[in-house]
Structure formats: structure tokens, C-alpha cells
């Protein structure tokens, strides 16, 4: 190993040469001198470092015992406070137990173990030419032993067999994993002619008279809980109901009959990627999806006014029954929720 002084000498040498005689690049001055630590020369500092390591291990032992005491003495209990206390006591015990060991080991290594750097040669990854040649020969020998090159039919049979056998695993896997693969279920929801609009989650039917101007209702079909898979149905059928001043409402010609006295119902599933569009701003009549901020104008056919959604929220045609309860006129007239490839295909 070269040391600091040798490097110094080399630098002086460079300065005294004529520029033309100098090398193109500087030379590596070699490994610098080792800097002694405090404990390397001073036995007292060395002993002190050792005691520190011992103390750190000691802290760990005490913390583990503390953890065990906390485990038995502080059950989580029934209140948030007792749960918090239990978690804090156990966590601090565990943390100190681990950190004691960690700090002790690192301090030991840094302060007490030999800190002279060593070096080792590197070797290129590439095999030597002889080894490469030998490898090729070994493969050639093996290929010759199997005579694979001359047996074309066997080759074909083997490849066919290997290519086909995974079907025995893949076909049942794919066949079953997507249930019945009937993706046309996306098109329909539980809503049908006469289904009462009920509040979510209580399931209480809503009377038109109870909906005041400016109020919002989160709505489910009244018979949702009778469905085979209520959550699956709910994921498609949730509706947001708003009553506007009929003067504020802009309605398309073909949808004039879909609202009732300023009450409009729209699918709550965002047409972007399907979050529930739940934030209604009364002043602007805007509905905001909290996931990606698509904004829909409830007063104007729930058209998109901002954000990543393209299509308006589908509207549920509603009316009232004889008793004054809000009911659906039919299912949604288009698939609810995010777009998908065959959404408009017949």
C-alpha cells in the first residue's frame, strides 16, 4: 500500500517536469494513512467504549423484561385509552429491546473492532477462453449423446407434449376464476318499474313530500337486502337524489318526464373509474367525486364540468306512486359506472 507521503512526492515530481513529458492522466496516489481512533491509543477511552456497549445490551435486556411486564399488567381493555396505553407500552418495550441490541452491535463494530481497511482483488466475470471452449464442448457432447439433431419426429413430439400439457392446468383455472364470465351483468341493476327509492343504509322508502329543495338523499332500492348478493347489487344500484328549484333545472327534451317536481336521481357511481360521487355542493348544484375530482352539474343532466370523467352520470327515471313514495320508472337506460369496451355494443 502506498501512503500519504508517497503521494506528496509524486505531486512534486509532476510540478518540476516540462509539460510535454507529463503523463496524460494523474496517477492514483494509493491508499491514505489510517487515522487512529480515540480508543486505539488510549486504553481508558477503549474501556469506556466497551462499557457503553455493555450498557446498551443491558438496556435491551431491561426493555425486554419491561415488555413482558407490560404484556401481563396492561391488557388492551375496552376503552380507546387503555388500548392506546397497551400499544404504547408494548411498542416502547420492543423498540428499546431492539434498538439496544442494534446500537450496541454497531458501536462495538465502530469503536472496538479492527478498523484497518483491507483490499482484495477483483476478477472479471467472463470465463477464460479454455473454460468457454470446454463448456461448448460439453454441450456438444451432450447433444450428440441424445442425438436430438437427427431425431426430427421425436423433437416434434416432445415440443408438442411440453407445449400442450399446461392446458390441463390453465383451462380449469381460467374456466372457473371468472365465475360464469357473463359480463352483460354490467348492463343491468336491481332498479325496475315500481321499485321504491329508499334511504341508505336504513332502507326506509322516501316520500316526495319529505324531500325539501336543496336536500340530498343517498338512495338504495327498497328491496336491496333481498338480493342474493346485496353488496354486488349495491355497487351498481346506489343513487343520489336531489331536489332543485324546477326553475334551476335544465332538462333534455327526451328526459322531461324523468324527474318529479324538481327531484332528480342520478347514479352515484362515477363514470370515470367507479368511486361513489358523494360530495354535493348546494350553491352550484355540482357533484364532486372525491377520488379524482370529476365534477358533474346536477342541474344540467349531470354533465361533466371538470375532471377526468367523460360521460354524464346515468339518470334514473323516477315518479311517485299513489301513496306519494318515490319509485323508479324503469332500470337505468344505460350501463352505470366506468366505461368499458363493449358498453355501447348491442
Amino acid at each position: 500500500m502506498t501512503n500519504h507521503d508517497a503521494g506528496h512526492g509524486a505531486s512534486n515530481e509532476i510540478v518540476t517536469h516540462e509539460p510535454g513529458a507529463l503523463p496524460d492522466r494523474f496517477q492514483d496516489p494509493g491508499h491514505p494513512d489510517h487515522h487512529a481512533r480515540l480508543g486505539d491509543n488510549d486504553p481508558k477511552a477503549n474501556k469506556k467504549a466497551e462499557l457503553q456497549v455493555v450498557a446498551l445490551f443491558g438496556i435491551s435486556v431491561i426493555a425486554t423484561l419491561g415488555f413482558l411486564v407490560a404484556y401481563f399488567a396492561l391488557p388492551p381493555g375496552d376503552t380507546p385509552e387503555s388500548m392506546l396505553r397497551s400499544n404504547l407500552a408494548l411498542g416502547l418495550g420492543l423498540a428499546l429491546s431492539l434498538l439496544g441490541i442494534g446500537f450496541a452491535a454497531v458501536h462495538w463494530a465502530k469503536a472496538l473492532m479492527n478498523d484497518h481497511e483491507k483490499s482484495e482483488d477483483r476478477h472479471v466475470q467472463r470465463s477464460s477462453d479454455e473454460n468457454r471452449e470446454a463448456a461448448v464442448n460439453v454441450l456438444k457432447e451432450g447433444a450428440a449423446d441424445s442425438a436430438i439433431g437427427r431425431r426430427g419426429v421425436l423433437q416434434g413430439a416432445m415440443i408438442s407434449a411440453l407445449a400442450l400439457f399446461p392446458l390441463a392446468i390453465i383451462v380449469p383455472f381460467v374456466g372457473n376464476i371468472g365465475d360464469d364470465w357473463n359480463v352483460s351483468k354490467f348492463r343491468h341493476t336491481m332498479w325496475k318499474k315500481g321499485t321504491k327509492l329508499a334511504t341508505d343504509p336504513s332502507g326506509r322508502p322516501i316520500k316526495a313530500a319529505d324531500v325539501t329543495i336543496g336536500s340530498v338523499f343517498h338512495v338504495i332500492p327498497e328491496d336491496l337486502h333481498e338480493a342474493e348478493h346485496p353488496l354486488d347489487e349495491k355497487a351498481k344500484a346506489v343513487v343520489l337524489l336531489v331536489r332543485l328549484d324546477p326553475a334551476d333545472l335544465t332538462e333534455a327534451e327526451d328526459r322531461k318526464g324523468w324527474s318529479y317536481d324538481g327531484i332528480v336521481a342520478y347514479s352515484k357511481i362515477c363514470t370515470h373509474v367507479g368511486c361513489p360521487v358523494a360530495l354535493y355542493e348546494q350553491q352550484t348544484h355540482h357533484l364532486l367525486c372525491p377520488c379524482h375530482q370529476s365534477t358533474f352539474d346536477v342541474a344540467d343532466g349531470a354533465k361533466v364540468v371538470f375532471g377526468p370523467a367523460k360521460r354524464p352520470l346515468p339518470q334514473l327515471p323516477i315518479t311517485v306512486d299513489d301513496e306519494g313514495y318515490l319509485i323508479a320508472q324503469s332500470d337505468f337506460t344505460e350501463p352505470v359506472g366506468p366505461s368499458y369496451w363493449e358498453r355501447l355494443a348491442r
Binding site: L94, A95, L98, L99, A105, V106, M113, D115, D121
Partner: peptide, 25 residues
């Protein structure tokens, strides 16, 4: 051509081992 540093045993056994406990801690 060369690698310069400390030996796995004991330096990195202690340092990395200690470091595991520190990260966990």
C-alpha cells in the same frame, strides 16, 4: 481491479446485524 473495505466477519456481521435490530427498532 481491487475492492477496498472491511471483512464480512466480524465487521459486517456486527454492523449489518446491528443495523437489522436498529431498523426493526
Amino acid at each position: 481491479k481491487i475492492v477496498v473495505g472491511y471483512p464480512l466477519f466480524p465487521i459486517y456481521v456486527a454492523k449489518a446485524g446491528g443495523y437489522f435490530f436498529t431498523v426493526f427498532g
